[in-house]
C-alpha cells in the first residue's frame, strides 16, 4: 500500500466533508450514495487505479466508468483530491457554466471516461472498452466500473453481465455499491436483488463480497480481481448508506436529497443539517472532539 490505512481514512473523511459542502452549495443532489462510496473511491484512486491527473488522456491509463452518475459528488471530490482540478472548483457543482454538471458529462471535464446518469448502461460501456483492449491485445489497461445495487433492476445491466461472462472479460472489474437503498425505499422491498452474488456467479463472473468501509478488504479485492484470468470480477461492496453522518446512515430518505433541503423526522432541522453533518464527520460521529469547533 502507498498510504497507511489511517491516511486513507483521513482522505475519505475530507472527501465526505467536501461532498456535504458541495451538496449544500448546489442545493440539490444525492447524499447517501456519495457518502457511502467515499471509502471505495479513496482506495481506488489513491491505491489501485493507474492514471495521470495532469495527463487525463494518457493512452495507457486504466479506464474508470461511473455507471450510477448520480453519485458524482464523490467522483468529483475524489478527482479534485487526486489532482485533476483544484478543490476550489467543487463549489461550482450543478451551477451554470460548470464543468461539474449535475450528472457527469465526459465532453465537459477532462478525466471523465463517459457520460452517465440514466441507469443501467455503465457496465455495457465498460465491457465495450474491455473488449476493445482485448481485440488489440492490450493487457496493461484495466477497466473498472462502479455501479449501484438499484441499477441491477435495469435490463441493460443484465445484458452487459451476460455479455462480459460469455466473452470472459477478465480485464473488467465491476464494483457494486450494495447499500440496500433506492429512492423509493429498500431494494429488497422495491424489487429484491438477492441472492445477488449467486446471480453474478450464474452469469460466469468471479464474485467477491467485502465490507465497503474496510480499506484492507477493498484494496485486497480490487487487486485480487487483476489475478482472475478466466472471468470478469464483481466486487459486492456492502456499504452503509450515508456512511459517516449518523443521522443519514441506513436511511433511504437521504438517497436523493442534499442537506438543508427539508426537515426529516428524527434528524436535525433542515437549517442545521449541514452543520451537524460536517460536525459528525469532523468528530467521527462524536468519537473525537472537533478541532474546528
Amino acid at each position: 500500500m502507498i498510504h497507511t490505512t489511517k491516511e486513507l481514512e483521513l482522505i475519505a473523511n475530507e472527501i465526505r466533508q467536501d461532498i456535504i459542502k458541495m451538496l449544500v452549495e448546489a442545493g440539490s443532489g444525492h447524499s447517501a450514495g456519495p457518502l457511502d462510496m467515499a471509502d471505495v473511491f479513496t482506495a481506488m484512486f489513491f491505491e489501485v487505479l493507474r492514471y495521470k491527473p495532469k495527463e487525463p488522456d494518457w493512452p495507457e491509463r486504466d479506464r474508470f466508468v461511473l455507471s450510477n452518475g448520480h453519485i458524482n459528488p464523490v467522483l468529483y471530490a475524489t478527482m479534485a483530491h487526486a489532482g485533476y482540478f483544484p478543490t476550489s472548483e467543487l463549489k461550482t457543482l450543478r451551477k451554470f457554466g460548470t464543468r461539474l454538471q449535475g450528472h457527469p458529462e465526459r465532453t465537459r471535464l477532462p478525466g471523465l471516461e463517459t457520460t452517465s446518469g440514466p441507469l443501467g448502461s455503465g457496465i455495457s460501456q465498460a465491457a465495450g472498452m474491455a473488449l476493445g483492449f482485448k481485440m488489440d491485445a492490450l493487457v496493461q489497461q484495466r477497466v473498472w466500473c462502479f455501479t449501484s445495487d438499484g441499477e441491477h433492476q435495469e435490463g441493460n445491466t443484465w445484458e452487459a453481465i451476460m455479455f462480459a461472462g460469455k466473452n470472459r472479460l477478465n480485464n473488467l472489474t465491476v464494483v457494486v455499491d450494495r447499500n440496500n437503498i433506492q429512492i423509493d425505499g429498500l431494494t429488497e422491498d422495491i424489487m429484491p436483488l438477492e441472492p445477488f452474488a449467486m446471480k453474478y456467479q450464474a452469469f460466469n463472473w468471479h464474485v467477491i463480497e467485502i465490507d465497503g468501509h474496510n480499506f484492507e478488504e477493498i484494496i485486497a479485492a480490487l487487486n485480487q480481481s487483476r489475478a482472475i484470468l478466466e472471468k470478469p470480477t464483481c466486487i459486492i461492496a456492502h456499504t452503509i448508506a450515508g456512511k459517516g453522518v449518523d443521522f443519514m446512515e441506513y436511511d433511504y430518505r437521504w438517497h436523493g436529497i442534499p442537506p438543508g433541503l427539508k426537515d426529516i423526522e428524527g434528524d436535525p432541522p433542515k437549517a442545521l443539517q449541514a452543520k451537524a453533518a460536517l460536525e459528525k464527520l469532523r468528530t467521527l460521529n462524536g468519537k473525537i472532539r472537533s478541532e474546528h469547533e
Binding site: 479506464r63 466508468v65 471516461e113 463517459t114 443501467g120 448502461s121 455495457s124 460501456q125 465498460a126 465491457a127 465495450g128 472498452m129 474491455a130 473488449l131 476493445g132 483492449f133 481485440m135 488489440d136 435490463g155 441493460n156 445484458e159 452487459a160 451476460m162 455479455f163
Partner: peptide, 20 residues
C-alpha cells in the same frame, strides 16, 4: 451481441471510447 439492443449500442459506445 445476442438479442440485446440496449447492450448493442452501449457496447459500441465503449468500443468507440478505446478508439474503434
Amino acid at each position: 451481441v445476442g438479442v440485446a439492443e440496449q447492450n448493442l449500442v452501449t457496447l459500441a459506445s465503449g468500443l468507440s471510447a478505446v478508439g474503434k
